[in-house]
């Protein structure tokens, strides 16, 4: 690296540190100026862009968040933070499908081998909220479509009877069957309980990152690790000795959870 470049990089790094200090003190304007300085000196460092995006996020300036995150992703397509904040920005301007896609990407990257566990929970919460909102919206829409369709069908049966295509008894029977069909269609989308086999025995909540122990019991990874650290090195259900190294991801359950969530968006609902 040429001396001039080297000193620019060094200066940019110092500006970033200033920015971080300002951010911690909630001096967002000063932090933005510092990161902008760093970007001017070294526009190819993704972290400068994501740090500035974080400042804009704090100010709810979502357009600017989006621009900075897109720039960061050009430089580093694996940036968990850039995918996360881009997702939030897209959700803010009601680009639900795209926003959810970005959040999913960041969750996948955040859970990888270089896990950023502190962010994973935050990302999951945002994703679950977006998915739940999406379900609410589409569920209302489907319900209203079904109602209209049911009315139209009832009218059609009535007209058919009036044209003497069916007897009064046939008409009554068909009406009952029709209502049953529509009742079943509505029930499929009504929130109930998540089945026990998709819930962790410790959280009692639907799995996010399920791991299986040598005893064959599946738990939520973060909770089981906490148990091994705080309570004792044993399987909480069977009480067999257990070490963290023995845990294996339970991919089958993970897929089953995803399939369940895809069919039952209400299960994303988080308690306050």
């Amino acid at each position: 690296m040429a001396p001039a470049q080297a000193s620019a990089a060094k200066q940019a790094e110092l500006l970033k540190q200033d920015g971080n200090t300002f951010y911690k003190k909630e001096r967002i304007g000063a932090a933005i100026d510092a990161y902008t300085g760093a970007i001017t000196l070294c526009p190819n460092v993704a972290v400068y862009w994501t740090n500035r995006a974080l400042c804009y996020k704090k100010r709810n300036e979502w357009r600017k968040v989006e621009d900075d995150c897109r720039k960061a992703l050009q430089l580093d397509s694996h940036s968990v933070k850039a995918h996360y904040m881009l997702g939030l920005a897209l959700l803010d301007r009601e680009e639900y499908a795209e926003g959810i896609k970005e959040l999913e990407k960041s969750l996948e990257l955040g859970r990888g081998p270089h896990s950023m566990s502190y962010m994973v929970e935050e990302i999951w919460q945002a994703l679950a909220k977006a998915k739940y909102t999406e379900w609410e919206r589409s569920s209302k829409e489907i319900a209203s479509q079904l109602r209209k369709l049911e009315e139209a069908c009832e009218n059609a049966l009535k007209i058919y009877r009036d044209l003497d295509g069916s007897t009064e008894d046939e008409y009554e029977e068909q009406l009952i069957q029709l209502r049953e069909v529509f009742r079943k269609a509505t029930v499929a989308d009504v929130p109930t309980e998540v089945p026990d086999h998709l819930c962790c025995k410790i959280t009692l909540d639907i799995f996010r990152d399920p791991v299986i122990t040598p005893s064959g019991v599946t738990y939520e990874r973060a909770m089981l690790l906490q148990h091994l650290q705080k309570v004792g090195k044993f399987d909480p259900v069977t009480r067999e000795p257990l070490e963290p190294e023995q845990l294996v991801p339970n991919l089958a359950i993970k897929e089953a959870v995803q399939a369940f969530l895809d069919d039952h968006g209400w299960a994303y609902k988080m308690r306050p």
Partner: peptide
């Protein structure tokens, strides 16, 4: 938060 969430679920199940 984890404790409150779990207790709400236990209470609902109860």
């Amino acid at each position: 938060k984890i404790a409150a969430n779990r207790l709400q679920k236990e209470l609902a199940e109860w």
